[in-house]
Amino acid sequence: MRPAWTSITLALVSGLIGAAGFASLERLIPASGGERTRVEGVVHDYLMAHPEILPAAMDALRDRGHAETIAANRSAIYTPVGSAWAGSANPDVTLVEYFDYNCGYCRASLPTIAALLKSDPKIRIVYRDFPILAQSSVDAARMSLAAAEQGKFQAFHDALYAGGPVTAQSIAAAAKTAGVDAARAAAYAPRAEQEITSNETIARALGMTGTPSWVIGNKIVSSALPLEELQKAIAEVRAKK
């Protein structure tokens, strides 16, 4: 019976090099007998001497999975709803923020995002509503999407954050300040629901468990990032182009 560590290692290798590469690798390892035992022993001893490669391999496997999910859902991730974006109209790097209006870390990230946009005229930030904290988050997301569809996302976004706690009253006040057409917003409601469902489905597939979460290139970061970390991530994406 194959040792557990061998199965884990081969599973990781399979994910990293793909099915074709894994099949080639398997052909190089004897199917049974003393030679296979010797090869497995060499692998075991190497892993025991260099255990740090396993977390690195698992990270690489995770990133590959994220890249595949992003590629399969690229339009749904990177194409903003209406005006739910900021920055360059012709960016060389696009970051996607999944956010919740009730998220304190999202609120705390506002100055960082503003500084990033000011410091780098070649980027775009796409905002995706990911309302997971409360019913008021869902209500705010619906109005946010309606505002975006009307070209008034940023005005609503700023007004709601400036309005204190997210409530039915503060959402209505922000919509009024932004000039959101109420009848048009009501008509857009079914589409907004579809968008929220799509965002949640993709976010879960990408392993996002909280907000803010970022799609930066082919990587996922679920945390509030300081300006320097965002700039570093952007530089890494540019370096790969």
Rank of each mutant, 00 (worst) to 15 (best):
G207Q: 07
A233V: 07
L117R: 03
T201F: 06
I113H: 08
V39W: 07
A11T: 12
A235H: 07
I171M: 06
A76N: 06
L110V: 15
K176Q: 14
I123W: 01
G104Y: 04
A146C: 01
K232D: 13
A203R: 01
I202K: 01
A146M: 00
Y98K: 05
P212W: 07
I17A: 00
W214N: 00
A4W: 09
H50S: 14
T112V: 10
L16W: 06
E236Q: 12
A192D: 04
Y188R: 14
A11V: 07
A67H: 01
P190V: 03
D120E: 07
E97L: 05
M48L: 14
C106V: 00
V138L: 10
E97P: 08
H66A: 11
R191W: 08
A114Y: 10
R184K: 14
Q169D: 15
I216V: 12
L61W: 11
N102L: 03
P55I: 01
R191F: 05
V138P: 04
S144D: 08
I70N: 05
V180R: 09
P121K: 12
L95S: 03
D120Y: 06
D45P: 12
M58K: 08
N199K: 01
T197P: 06
C103T: 09
V42K: 05
G151A: 02
A233S: 13
R184V: 11
Q194Y: 09
F156P: 11
N199P: 05
A148H: 02
L225M: 12
G163C: 04
A89H: 10
G18M: 07
F99T: 13
Q194D: 15
E195Q: 15
M143P: 13
R64V: 09
A185F: 08
A148C: 07
A182P: 15
M48K: 13
S136C: 06
G210E: 12
I125Q: 00
T209M: 10
H66Y: 14
A134M: 08
A49V: 09
I132E: 02
L225K: 06
R36W: 08
A168T: 14
M48D: 12
A162P: 03
F22H: 07
C106T: 04
I123F: 01
V39R: 11
S213W: 02
P121V: 09
G18D: 06
A159Y: 00
T112E: 06
